[in-house]
Design a protein around this nucleic acid. Structure first.
Lengths: 356, 356
DNA sequence: TGATATAAAGAGACCGGTCTCACAACATAT
DNA sequence: ATATGTTGTGAGACCGGTCTCTTTATATCA
């Protein structure tokens, strides 16, 4: 009933040692599970620990061992299904290896990412998985490496950084998806992304600071180019950051002289917004407009028609990143690699066949 | 280019102190931002710290201050949209107050939850938000309280525990939803949950160990009872744990002599499974069967028809829990409360009007 | 039986911060 | 000139574990 004795002060090894009438060192050996102790003493200490409800202070433990047993994860937005599923994969891989994860949100903002990384380093995480918001600013990530903390990039790669990265085969994926659209007879396509819009549209693909987005755009443009379709860059539309903006983008897009007959959404959030936009514009899929979205999100399989998607196998992506980081932490000798998880196109009903 | 000097050993206050030619105590005062130091010395130390790229060891800091700046969160399943959105709310509230969060998954398993809680306590989190898998086993949660760590229950309450809880008004919500169904003329209803099925169906509501589920069932049953509908308990179906099981549950349910004309799904995952089941059985909503789901999940607004749902305002739920915990950590004098976030029924198109 | 190996337990340094206390230097009051 | 106060700095204990080194007790061998 009453919380007598120690209303707050936590029980320490010293307390247990005193209760078990042994030295602090001996108690620590038993409780820490290292060194040698006689069975008899061990039982004594265990009994005392149980009676006192001893719980080790992991902080103190980490201090002396230098390992925290924590993996830091910096994601763009946990709320996004892509990241929450990935986190699940990372978490599973981590737990399997005896690590816990601590999550920080960057909101895709560089400065938030920077301070999150700094903080996690400060917490002495054993390793870090980061989804870099931009692939051109890498001082904070270089600092991670200099601090000797294992790092794995997730979803986006930075070749200059000489560090492991786990991503999808974004270029291939976009290429395949776009070829599919072209194969179904579409000649006027558009790629829609949530990336912040630059004034005056996209001028140079190489300027896209997010490698995943860039590769997808590259794949999309390649497919257009190989099919001799005009104005590939003009077909890339940015700024679908929320429903309102997406509605605007769509309205602009569809009121052009020769509006696209097929759309490729850069992620499932954009895909959902596009879907709603089309719905509110009274356009039907795929009769009026065809679309393909990235990510096998919940909603894509229950719409009418169900949406053709690029399956990114996000759980595997996360799991792989987790496993890779664990291997690094455990100093497994491995060459620095850019691991790509193969995606696949899941054809459902959102793409119409047009032309002859 | 080369990582000279300290290839691995992190820079400490002592290092900075030596470089700045002051005592460790003085350097610590500057770097820790406490006590008094002359501007001159302060600049000296700051310069040395910058040159050496000093980063404080938060672990050591936590050791002496006794505060870690971390809030522990134990959820059922991050992959679930309900939890990932809630985590976002918690995270936002935490960050605003200068806390970070560390997430652990229980998978709704009691023992996983227990060890997660133990581990987080060990990490000396400043507070804990837990979604208890069961509301009848509370020894580990009692231990949290005895350890003096502030605790807030999320989504489920345990009155016996005398601790803050933040939940939806589940009983009301289910009552309102069910009344809506009855009001539309439905007389044969079923409530479908993912809770593990007991042999021989549900016998006693009071035995449901998850308070959120129990309250919803209570609300559902109350509505049935007040409308003089028979067999309320028989109308509660458990075991919709995955698509396969849900298909089985649905098949059984719909092949009864007088099958239900309306379904209430206990959460959005179950809702989605039910939707898919009905789809694969060739039944149309709401002509053949009406349904209402909990949670305003992505998928519910893009189906045909869009799904009538109970809006749980999960982000607010999470945010409130985060804020409450922060208040506890900061020792704001507050009575122990069970905070309920009001939900609302969002009528869309998945409920048919039948009868006269 | 004495010398040596071996097992078990104790003493205390250490990790990297915080923080209390002592002390020095200088300013102001008496 | 001495007492008192203020401010800035240094010395060192402390947090709660781990871990090395030393000491003591017991076993093994010649």
């Amino acid at each position: 009933m009453e919380d007598s004795a120690h209303p707050k002060r936590p029980v320490t090894v010293a307390d247990v040692a005193k209760a078990a009438k042994v030295s602090k060192a001996t108690a620590a050996r038993v409780l820490g599970g290292y060194g040698v102790v006689s069975v008899q003493i061990k039982d004594q200490v265990m009994a005392a620990a149980a009676a006192l409800e001893y719980r080790p202070n992991e902080l103190a433990r980490s201090m002396s061992t230098g390992r925290s047993g924590i993996i830091g994860v910096v994601v763009g937005d946990i709320e996004n299904a892509f990241f929450s599923l990935a986190v699940r994969g990372i978490s599973d891989a981590a737990r399997l290896a005896g690590f816990n994860i601590i999550i920080a949100n960057s909101g895709e903002q560089l400065d938030a990412e920077r301070s999150a990384v700094d903080l996690l380093i400060g917490k002495r995480v054993d390793g870090l998985i980061v989804t870099p918001a931009r692939c051109d600013r890498l001082d904070h990530l270089q600092h991670v490496r200099r601090a000797g903390v294992p790092l794995v990039l997730f979803d986006r790669a930075i070749p200059e950084l000489d560090v492991d990265a786990v991503t999808g085969d974004d270029r291939e994926a976009a290429l395949t998806a776009t070829r599919h659209l072209i194969g179904q007879g579409h000649r006027r396509l558009a790629y829609v992304s949530a990336m912040d819009a630059e004034r005056g549209g996209l001028t140079d693909i190489a300027l896209i600071s997010n490698s995943a987005v860039r590769e997808r755009v590259e794949g999309f443009v390649s497919a257009l180019t190989e099919a001799d379709l005009p104005n590939p860059l003009h077909s890339v539309r940015l700024g679908a950051t929320d429903q309102h903006q997406t509605d605007a983008v769509m309205k602009r897009l569809l009121s052009e002289i020769s509006p696209p007959t097929a759309l490729l959404a850069s992620d499932s959030l954009v895909g959902l917004r596009i879907f709603k936009s089309l719905q509110s514009l009274g356009l039907s899929i795929p009769q009026d407009v065809s679309m393909i979205s990235f990510l096998d999100a919940d909603w894509t399989s229950v719409t009418v028609p169900p949406i053709t998607i690029v399956d990114q196998r996000v759980y595997e992506l996360g799991k792989l990143a987790g496993e890779r980081l664990v291997a690094r932490i455990e100093r497994t000798p491995l060459a620095v690699e850019h691991l790509r998880v193969t995606t696949s196109l899941v054809v459902r009903g959102s793409v119409a066949t047009i032309g002859r």
